[in-house]
Nucleic acid binder design. Structure first.
Length: 642
RNA sequence: GCCGACCUAGCUCAACUGGUAGAGCAAUUGAUUUGUAAUCAAUAGGUUAUGAGUUCAAGUCUCAUGGUCGGCUCCA
């Protein structure tokens, strides 16, 4: 039997027999609090054999680290499945992993679970926890496993078993009390160690995530080591609902979607929403012009010939609205702006000296998204992209990529966004374009990502067939990720539209084409902005910045004077001279999340002062308009936009 | 598109196991002129998403359609 070399957390090296169990290695050092280890980053529970050389770190339950959470949340998946099997013996088990903040398990059952069922399952789970079963690891070979699963009559597990076998991975079961499940682990030592959980919801989910396969019932839950953590997590979920852009959009009168009168996924931007959008667009437009972009415009529809050339009719017709017919021609609403920009590029003979060319357009596109996917402003059927296409020479390409990633990050940061998730998607199996171009493009994207200093994930093989890409995602209030920026190479359209430039060698060359949207779409970006600010927009974006509140009629004249002065300085200011009480008018302005309320009464009139109330409820110490102006300019990052 | 839940006044919600809708806020009108998150009163507002069906009787039960929400899938 071979031996392996293990580096212990205290720095000592230890030589052990291959296959030694974790609990044997830790013998003595281990406490009730120790639930497992990581070996070279991989998680192993106390019952797992150690099979490779490396450095170990101990996972303590009380640390409540991501590793520890993974252990007990995955164990909750089992306890859930165990409870379901007790209550519904005919249920077939699929998969049940730990996920961020919780866990789930997929079941094939005749009748979908009801909220009432969830209560009963919860009760049963509590019982199982109390029964305090230990999790036992059982190593088996393929034949034994197949026999066991056949006896248990678990078709989905049998399918998984075949997959495990084909990958050549080891086969293990985990048993706790009356429940045994094909599972690679890891698990906590016993069911009683963590008891704070809540089942959250039931949802349909396709087996193996494939819409052609059977739809199973998925039960989601959340679990924490401490009761208080569970409580605060549930409170966060509640709180997040208040930041939902669909709720705030209504409350603040920002936008509406009217499926009956206009159509699902088609947005009306009301006055305040439109006002903010205009400010956002103005800011972006200025930055684009400063960054060497040319602004272009293109129509909303184009003839079928255009979409045949671009290939959209061949590959993307399902995502397009059906055609309009006129004089024997078919016109389609544009799902993308690229073909138009390609036409602009192709309208002239281009020299290598003309490049790079950067065409930007706030282009409104229409896509027939499937009905079940529509979601507030984040997934709609008509939306405006802050789109641009870069055309450049190979020698310019890396710098262009670098610049555009920088641009994207700086723009998002201008709006206070910072918790980015970056993804690099590389060449898929089916693709077009030369190997050398793909390699150069992927290298440039990766180099730009590294230079940005932000960590990113690699989605190998997840690029479009026409080119690799970087996506920047940001989460909404419920931690759901939404893609805002995208930077995509396109090796397809330059060929289809036969785009070229004359090089310094006097010969024709194919330019690189890079498609990019930075905020993504105005609609989705607005949703994210609303949820991140909770509707408390920064001063420079607030539609109304100041509400003037004279206390009584005698103060109206002074209020009017103050209002005009503020307007002249450039503030967006309104007054509320209704006969309601001051409290009431403060409340009204507060609900609209107006940054400043000016309260003007006898005291202010006499001393020619102003009293300023902030949205936070505090008063500013300042008393004059000039001081106030200086204060706002200092506190507001984008001064020109105040 | 798929699975499930839901759809009552502009908004948030109520109406026991079926007995033909009720409140708060908002709106309008009047009174009130108020010192930092709700002054008082009156008025108006609903073919209970739509369409069928069961029933003496349907907001309530059944079915269909549309939409919303939570997931899944999709997002070349």
């Amino acid at each position: 039997m071979s031996t392996i070399d293990i580096k212990l957390p205290n720095g000592e090296n230890k030589i052990i027999q291959k296959g030694t169990k974790v609990c044997e290695l830790l013998n003595g050092a281990s406490t009730d609090n120790t639930i497992g280890i990581t070996l070279n980053g991989a998680q192993l529970d106390l019952n797992s054999p150690i099979t490779e050389t490396g450095e170990i770190k101990i996972i303590e339950l009380s640390s409540d680290s991501e590793n520890a959470k993974y252990f007990y949340r995955h164990s909750f998946s089992h306890i859930l499945a165990q409870a379901v099997k007790r209550l519904y013996p005919e249920a077939k088990l699929a998969i049940g992993p730990a996920i961020e903040d919780g866990f789930y398990y997929d079941f094939d059952v005749k009748e979908p679970f009801t909220p009432e069922d969830l209560k009963n399952i919860t009760k049963e789970m509590k019982k199982i926890i109390k029964e305090n079963h230990s999790f036992e690891r059982i190593d088996v070979n393929y034949e034994e496993a197949k026999k066991m699963l056949a006896e248990q009559n678990e078709p989905y597990k049998l399918e998984l078993l075949e997959e495990i076998k084909s990958k050549g991975e080891s086969i293990t079961f985990y048993k706790d009390g009356d429940f045994i499940d094909l599972c690679r682990g890891p698990h906590i030592p016993s069911t009683k160690l963590v008891r704070n959980f809540k089942l959250l919801s039931v949802a349909g989910a396709y087996w193996r995530g494939d819409e052609n396969k059977k739809m199973l019932q998925r039960i989601y839950g959340t679990a924490f080591l401490n009761k208080d953590d569970l409580k605060s997590h549930l409170a966060i979920l509640e709180e997040a609902k208040k930041r939902d852009h669909r709720k705030l959009g209504k409350e603040l009168d920002l936008y509406s979607i009217n499926p009956d009168t206009i159509g699902g996924g088609l947005v009306l931007w009301h006055q305040k929403g439109g006002f903010i959008r205009n400010l956002v667009e103005e800011h972006c437009r200025k930055k684009h012009l400063d960054s060497g972009y040319d602004i272009v415009y293109s129509p909303h529809i184009g003839k079928s010939t255009l979409w045949e050339t671009s290939g959209h009719l061949q590959f993307y017709e399902d995502g397009m609205f059906p055609p309009l017919e006129m004089d024997g021609h078919k016109y389609y609403l544009k799902p993308m702006n690229c073909p138009f920009h390609c036409n602009i590029y192709g309208s002239n003979l281009r020299s290598y000296k003309d490049l790079p060319l950067r065409f930007a357009e706030w282009g409104t596109v229409y896509r027939f998204e499937r009905s079940g996917t529509l979601h507030g402003l984040t997934r709609v059927r008509g939306f405006t992209q802050d789109d641009a296409h870069l055309f450049c020479r190979p020698d310019q390409m890396p710098e262009e990529i670098d610049k555009v990633l920088d641009f994207s990050l700086s723009l998002l940061r201008d709006f206070g966004l910072s918790d980015f998730h970056l993804y690099l998607s590389t060449r898929p199996e089916k693709s077009v374009g030369d190997d050398s171009k793909w390699e150069a493009a992927e290298a440039a994207l990766e180099a730009a990502l590294k230079r940005s200093g932000i960590s990113y994930s690699l989605n190998a093989g997840d690029g479009a067939f026409y080119g690799p890409k970087i996506d920047i995602c940001i989460t909404d209030s419920l931690k759901r990720e939404w893609q805002l920026s995208t930077i995509q190479f396109d090796f397809n359209l330059p060929v289809r539209f036969d785009l070229k430039y004359i090089g310094d060698d006097g010969k024709e060359h194919r330019p690189y084409m890079i498609h990019r949207a930075l905020l993504g779409s105005m609609e989705r970006f607005f949703a994210i902005l609303i949820e991140h600010t909770a509707g408390i927009f920064p001063v420079w974006l607030a539609p109304t910045q100041i509400m003037v509140l004279p206390i009584a009629e005698t103060h109206h004249e002074y209020a009017e004077k103050v209002l005009n002065e503020l307007k002249n300085i450039g503030f967006r200011v309104q007054k509320d001279v209704s006969s309601n009480t001051l409290s009431y008018r403060v409340r009204t302005a507060q609900k609209q999340k107006i940054p400043f309320m000016l309260i003007l009464g006898d005291k202010e009139c006499e001393n020619k002062e102003i009293t300023i109330r902030l949205r936070s409820g505090d008063n500013l110490e300042l008393k004059s308009i000039s001081e106030f102006k200086a204060y706002v300019e200092e506190k507001t990052t984008l001064k020109e936009a105040v």
